[in-house]
């Protein structure tokens, strides 16, 4: 096992662990902090995939801005730690199904080749042209229309926030 694979395994394990903590922690602040950890692990994956810009965005936007907002909101609202009662509804069937699915996935993944298509942009191209430029180019040529639709999507989301959450409209 080379050093890169080992590093990947460690980061992946941390990502999964903190992901589990996000949904099992009773205290919302702990949950939010675990989510920050997951985002950092994701950023590490992006670096390993030769996508430094994505890693930076992941840290600045998700781990930085969005999570800070979420934690602010939790503290402002003074959400209490959920007490007592555990949700055990359907845990048995759920875990049996999950284990079965996991085995199924392993079985099929071991049986067949998993190579997908090789894209045009590999590590060399990223080194030569620059990651930001590649993203910008894709956004304004191939994906111009999806990029524009996103603006409508955000507008609708803003309307929704006002309609559903404003005290008096």
């Amino acid at each position: 096992m080379d050093i890169q694979t080992l590093f990947f395994a460690v980061v992946a394990a941390v990502a999964i662990l903190s992901g589990i903590l996000v949904i099992t922690c009773r205290n919302p602040i702990n949950s939010a902090l675990s989510l920050v950890m997951t985002f950092f692990c994701l950023a590490t994956f992006y670096v390993m995939l030769d996508a430094p810009f994505m890693a930076a965005i992941q840290v600045i936007v998700y781990a930085g801005a969005i999570m800070v907002l979420i934690i602010f909101v939790i503290m402002l609202l003074n959400v209490r730690v959920e007490s007592g009662k555990k949700y055990t509804h359907g845990v048995l069937i759920g875990s049996i199904m999950a284990v079965l699915l996991l085995f199924e996935a392993f079985y099929f993944l071991n049986r067949s080749s998993l190579t997908g298509a090789r894209g045009m942009i590999d590590a060399n191209v990223v080194q030569n042209v620059g990651h930001v430029e590649l993203i910008g180019r894709a956004m304004y040529t191939d994906f111009l229309l999806p990029f524009e639709i996103t603006s409508i999507l955000l507008l609708v989301a803003i309307i929704g926030a006002v309609i559903l959450a404003k005290k008096k409209i």
């Binding site: 994906f143 229309l145 999806p146 639709i149 409508i152 999507l153």
Partner: peptide, 14 residues
């Protein structure tokens, strides 16, 4: 394009 379909679906859903 799968992206267009996905974003259309998101605009609709939201």
């Amino acid at each position: 394009d799968l992206m267009t379909i996905f974003l259309g679906l998101e605009v609709l859903s939201i």
